[in-house]
Each structure stands twice: as C-alpha cells, then as structure tokens.
Write a protein that binds this DNA or RNA. Structure first.
Length: 113
DNA sequence: CGAATGACCAAGC
DNA sequence: GGCTTGGCCATTC
C-alpha cells in the first residue's frame, strides 16, 4: 500500500473498532497509536485512508466535526445522527458522553450511567 | 537527509 | 468571541 506505516495501521484498527453511536477524537487515536501529539497525522491518514472505515465517527477534541470530510460536515452529522449520535445546534457531538475507548468497556467507565 | 504537508491542539490577540 | 500563530509528530517528495 502507499501509506504503509505502523501508525496508520493502528489508526485503521482503532477506527474500525468504534461501535455505532460512539465517537473518538484524533488525539485519542493518536495516543492509542503511540503518540498523543500526532493528532495531525491521524487526519492526514484519514483523508487518504480506506473509505470502508467509519471516519465519520472520528471527531476533534471539542466534539466538533471536521471540515474535510468526504461530502461535507453536514454529511458527517447526518451519518452520526443515523447511528444514534445526538448533534447539538453548534454541530458538535456530546463528546464527553459519546466518546469511546477501545481499551475500556462501553459500560462502567463512561459517563452514560 | 531536508523541506513540505496535514480531516489537530492550545494559546494569543 | 472568532481568527491567527506556533508547535507537535509522522508520512511523503
């Protein structure tokens, strides 16, 4: 593949593990991949990454959607809403509540209660 | 190897 | 309160 990096591979794995109705941040993906400061590259990988992965579930740390998404920001919002993610008037998701960690259980650690 | 790039993050004005 | 600058880190030319 063109982008053969251990980093990108890790990103793909984690993104593919994000369940519907949940979202992850670039910083978290970067941290899980080995470098918490490499959030920028996560986006770069995402833009050129396979379309089979749920990149629409990947948002920035504010819970805000990205601008370079394939189709546009609104399209990403619709994709998330279609999976049960609530979008507020600002176009941001409840990151604190819908954030997903592959290393933690979907119940107990999160704040869904 | 050096320079450029990028769907970010945090701070500054 | 919204735009600009710098930094960070890894991939690509």
């Amino acid at each position: 593949m063109s982008s053969n990096g251990n980093f990108s591979a890790a990103i793909y794995e984690y993104v593919a593990e994000i369940p519907p109705g949940r979202v992850m941040t670039y910083g978290q993906l970067a941290a899980l991949a080995g470098s918490p400061r490499a959030a920028r590259m996560v986006g770069g990988v995402a833009h050129f990454g396979p379309e089979g992965l749920p990149w629409h579930r990947v948002v920035n740390k504010r819970g805000g959607l990205v601008s370079g998404y394939h189709g546009g920001r609104l399209m990403q919002e619709q994709a998330l809403e279609a999976e049960g993610v609530q979008i507020d008037d600002d176009g941001n998701v409840d990151i604190d509540r819908l954030i997903w960690w592959p290393a933690t259980s979907d119940t107990g650690n999160n704040k869904l209660t």
